[in-house]
Design a binder for these strands. Structure first.
Lengths: 120, 120
DNA sequence: CGGCTCGTACGATAGCCCTCGTAGTACGGC
DNA sequence: GCCGTACTACGAGGGCTATCGTACGAGCCG
């Protein structure tokens, strides 16, 4: 009902401000295998936005919603409605300002482990 | 009672092998403020080994033991007995081989946040 | 309008985790 | 040998979390 939300069915979702993003929350969000995989997939095509249903995760839809919310509330991803779909994208810009090099190091570490163990 | 442990009171503690260290476990270990602080303190004097009681943590001794064990079992620190004291050191060598640049990025991120928020 | 798909909300359950207190073990010094 | 120090083990409690099922709202298409 907010005047800003009147435009083209764009419901807003609560995101933490950049300065409210805490490192512990980011690390906790990424310490779950399902969420780490989501972030890796999002980073693969960094510019593209994927809907929640685009991912093939070994959990139900309810749990998927939960994981995406954890990622959003920790400041790792940005979610915007596009019609009935919810598009997800990394908050790479904000994370790079707050913690330069961290995201790349994390993604590289995840990729390295996936190649080593075969979990990706 | 093992023959190897007979030498000079060196009780052994179970550490994960380098190839058994999992990124998710490392991130989970570091997602706790107390443990993140321990790691930051250990990294400050990277060569030195500190006993558990060296740290001034806002938790009891039992909880401190618990946190050090989580850090050890996740592969972040190495613990060795030295008489009655237990010396702690970062496993920087192993972590750098597994995840190059990750530890430095994490420490830099933690330092940056501490400077920003004043939690350090 | 009717139905379809996408995602949410709510409740429930089970497991994990942080915290602590108390009791106990290992080592060093007197 | 005895005591103090450093740390551990065990058990308990309280809270968070991951997971699910079911029921529901929001937008699109015919």
């Amino acid at each position: 009902m907010t005047p800003a939300a009147t435009a083209a069915g764009t419901r807003d979702l609560p995101h933490p401000a950049r300065d409210d993003i805490r490192l512990e929350d980011v690390l906790h969000a990424l310490s779950d295998p399902v969420r780490l995989r989501i972030v890796r997939d999002l980073a693969a095509d960094s510019d593209a936005l994927f809907s929640c249903s685009h991912f093939d995760l070994p959990v139900t839809k309810s749990t998927t919603t939960h994981h995406f919310r954890v990622l959003r509330e920790s400041g790792v991803i940005r979610q915007t409605y596009r019609g009935t779909a919810k598009m997800n994208g990394l908050r790479r810009d904000d994370l790079d300002v707050l913690f330069p090099g961290l995201l790349d190091a994390l993604l590289a570490a995840a990729a390295r482990q996936a190649a080593r163990v075969g979990t990706g």
